Computed example of a mutant assay.
Amino acid sequence: MIQQNAEYYAMMIRAALAISLFLLAGAWRVAAAEPYAVIPKQIIYPGETVEAHMLEMVKVTNRNVRRDFASSMDQVEGMIAKRTLLPGRVVPVSSVREPYTVERGSVVTMVFSQNGLMITAPGSPLKNGTVGDFIRVRNVNTGVMVSGTVMADGTIRVAAQ
């Protein structure tokens, strides 16, 4: 009788273990559901702004696809293409960049502010920059080179030298 009970409990434990493994495998499949990727509907050339109508979302079925692809429209929409993006191919996050806030050669306002004193002057950035970049700027009136931080409003806050 004891032997039969032991065999019965062993069988029940094996059945419970099999059911647990089955459920766990099913949960893993749900957790590892196919991701979505952003792909272009048309050719997008370098320097072109990526717009929503140019893109679509698709399920990724190829397990060998590169892993740094954009998985949501927010990662790509409004960005600038750094290289040609082809239709039907995933968009690597590294192939797009933020739009420049200031562009090399344009005229921007340089702002110097310290102890209540504020001085503004027209300047020309020596390179492209996005918000937060520290770049060199040439004063249009005097030709003096200064460095400053690109601000969100397109001005350059000049650093004290």
Rank of each mutant, 00 (worst) to 15 (best):
K41S: 11
L24G: 14
V30K: 12
I39A: 06
P122D: 02
V30M: 14
A152R: 15
N5T: 02
V91K: 01
A52E: 15
R14K: 08
M54R: 00
V60Y: 00
I2P: 03
P40R: 08
Q4Y: 13
D68E: 13
V150I: 14
V60N: 00
S72R: 15
E51D: 11
T101C: 05
T142F: 03
G148R: 06
R67C: 03
S71T: 15
T109I: 10
K59Q: 10
D74T: 11
T155Y: 01
V108T: 04
A10M: 11
V93I: 14
E48C: 04
K41A: 10
T49W: 02
E7V: 09
W28R: 11
W28K: 11
A52G: 07
P122G: 01
V108N: 03
S113D: 05
A16V: 06
G123A: 14
W28G: 14
N139Q: 03
M11F: 13
L55R: 05
E7I: 10
E7R: 13
G47R: 01
T109D: 05
A81H: 00
F69G: 00
I19E: 15
N115D: 13
L17Y: 12
T61R: 02
I44N: 02
T155E: 01
E51S: 12
Y8Q: 09
E7L: 15
L17H: 10
L21S: 04
A15I: 14
L23T: 03
P99M: 08
V131Q: 06
I43V: 15
F22G: 15
M79Y: 04
N64E: 09
N141W: 00
I19F: 12
V107M: 08
P35E: 05
A121D: 03
D68Y: 04
L21P: 02
L117F: 10
V93W: 02
T109L: 07
V50L: 06
Y45R: 04
K59L: 13
V144H: 07
V146C: 06
F22N: 14
Y100D: 05
E51G: 09
A25W: 09
N64D: 11
M151E: 13
A81T: 03
V38I: 14
M57I: 15
M54L: 13
S113R: 06
L55I: 10
V93M: 10
T149C: 07
A52T: 12
L23M: 10
N141H: 01
V137S: 04
W28L: 13
R104C: 09
E48K: 04
T49F: 07
G148N: 04
S20H: 09
I135A: 10
G105L: 10
S147K: 14
L24H: 09
T142G: 01
S113Q: 09
V90G: 00
A152P: 07
F112W: 04
R67P: 00
V38D: 05
G129E: 08
Q114G: 01
L85S: 07
G88T: 06
N5H: 07
Y8A: 05
V30A: 14
T130S: 13
T61I: 13
H53Q: 11
F69N: 02
R97P: 03
L17A: 13
Q161G: 12
T142W: 01
M1E: 05
